[in-house]
Design a binder for these strands. Structure first.
Lengths: 240, 240
DNA sequence: TTTAGTGGCGAACAGCGTTCGTGTCAAGTA
DNA sequence: TACTTGACACGAACGCTGTTCGCCACTAAA
């Protein structure tokens, strides 16, 4: 923005048309509006028409700033990645820091409902994805991990985080669709699974039938961290 | 089909209407047609209209046998799971068998292009999903793993497999969209990533810039098995 | 022979991503 | 100051989607 926009025009000049103020429409505005809709209405609610409506314009106008819906989703995704906070790297504490990064990343993806659904679909080459990759990769390298292992580790941990967040977003979507609250939905979902398991013939599914309680015991957070720790422990065993 | 259809009708009886022979249309037929289309044209090509066309009928007819598209996808998914071959469980070799199962599952999901995209979306309660869950869960339990750990392990391994297969299906979709062959696509993709990495400013991304070769070294199979082994090793460490 | 009921399915609805062509406005030039 | 230029906004339309309604043909029972 120029610095002159707050200076009133000289009175002897005819007042210009009511100053555009509405003819802005930039990529940033579109991405922001898209994220707002994604948070409020989910991925199913995010259409180009809906974004245009949010900006008081027609859908065709968006295509001057964004190639297509897929690109818009990638832009939104990288914007969300920008919210991820990274501690100063301390290679001596690589296990803790890797764990913290994963949980932080998972938290951010989860806090924006359906963004994870777009995450898996996009190849992460945005500036924020790179910033995060450099952080995690550097952390492992500086901790002494072989570059090849560090490379694979970054890739696999990212896949795991995104996959879990994606699965979570599907539940969130179902929850929204049914209109239930988070608690209600969760109870009803687990209840369905439980009764389904209990109705199974014990002779054909002996192990499942015997351990139904264990199968439905843990919630999403415990599951996520369990799998994460599996991977981190595996990595620690490979550390020279 | 009845056995009488090849016998010509007695001439004194009015010729019946050309025998239905077309008025079959069952859920199985629909699922099969859907899978055929999924394999040939990908998830984007799979529409209710397309399935109906394949069966020489209109889209409305499908809804008598299938609630909606989501249910159709779940049915297709469970049908694909039926192709997974499981060795007789031998708890003493649980690590090898868990690994073999994961690779077999990954292979089957990968051989049906986009089915993994439907996999993550559906809650697996179909008969084949249960058969597999019972197998893996039982294998770990009988190997001596605590039921709570075994439950988490089954869940996490399944998520990892499906997540990776899903990612692979996205690449496959892009490959189809660009019209390139598998080799060409892969080379062009890795080439893009490589040149993108090499163009990064080394002062801001020192680790990435230094190890580009390691970052683009491994293909999908190596990556998948690396992450799988991370998890299996982590599980082995938790085995009492 | 009549009746009841089942299931196939044409047509339509509301919505989607995307494109084309036109309209309009701001800045640059004479 | 008047005119040209070029970029952007966007209404309207195209071809597609999942799904529903209501009519129709047909089978099976009465």
């Amino acid at each position: 923005m120029g610095s002159s926009e707050n200076v009133p025009p000289p009175p002897w000049r005819k007042a210009r048309k009511p100053v555009q103020l509405k003819r802005q429409l930039s990529q940033d505005l579109i991405v922001e509006a898209g994220l707002r809709i994604l948070d409020a209405e989910g991925l199913d609610g995010l259409s180009m028409r809906r974004v245009a409506q949010e900006l008081d314009t027609g859908p065709a106008s968006l295509y001057a700033h964004v190639a297509n819906k897929e690109e818009l989703l990638e832009l939104i995704y990288d914007r969300v990645l920008g919210e991820i906070q990274l501690a100063d790297p301390d290679p001596a504490r690589w296990k803790e820091q890797l764990r913290e990064y994963a949980i932080e990343c998972h938290r951010v993806l989860g806090s924006h409902a359906d963004v994870a659904r777009a995450a898996l679909a996009s190849i992460p080459v945005g500036p924020n994805a790179l910033r995060i990759a450099e952080y995690v990769f550097g952390l492992l390298i500086d901790a002494g991990m072989a570059p090849r292992d560090a490379s694979l580790a970054v890739d696999r941990i990212a896949l795991y985080i995104t996959g879990d967040a994606f699965e979570g977003s599907l539940h969130f979507g179902r929850m929204r669709a049914t209109g239930l609250g988070l608690e209600e939905y969760f109870k009803s979902f687990v209840g369905h699974i439980e009764s389904h398991y209990r109705a199974l013939p014990a002779e054909r599914f002996p192990h499942i039938a015997e351990h139904v309680d264990d199968l439905i015991a843990d919630d999403g957070r415990v599951r996520f961290e369990y799998g994460l720790d599996l991977m981190i422990d595996g990595l620690a065993a490979r550390m020279p």
